[in-house]
């Protein structure tokens, strides 16, 4: 668990759902994520993590997005119930 009782995308388990609460990045990163629909308040579910600091794949609005490990670490999520 992260500092505020939140987890980042990399820490989340596959199959879990959550709501994006914070993107800890500069404007460049935030813009790129926003453009793909990853904004605070968005419901997401995690599909998978690749081994060895590989990318995290999430699904939101019926679309899958792969996010590099270091970027995924900076996206904080409040977890919902496990499905």
């Amino acid at each position: 668990m992260g500092s505020n009782g939140l987890v980042n995308l990399a820490q989340m388990n596959s199959g879990q759902n959550g709501i994006v609460v914070e993107i800890q990045g500069g404007f460049g990163m935030t813009d790129r994520l926003n453009a793909l629909g990853i904004i605070t308040g968005k419901k997401i579910s995690k599909i998978s993590s690749m081994v060895g600091r590989g990318p995290v794949t999430i699904e939101l609005d019926r679309v899958q997005i792969a996010i590099g490990f270091n970027m995924a670490k900076r996206i904080l999520v409040e977890m919902g119930p496990k499905q």
Binding site: L36, V63, A66, I67
Partner: peptide
């Protein structure tokens, strides 16, 4: 190296 960020089409 920048980070990967891509949409994965169905």
């Amino acid at each position: 190296s920048p980070e990967l960020l891509i949409e994965i089409p169905p």
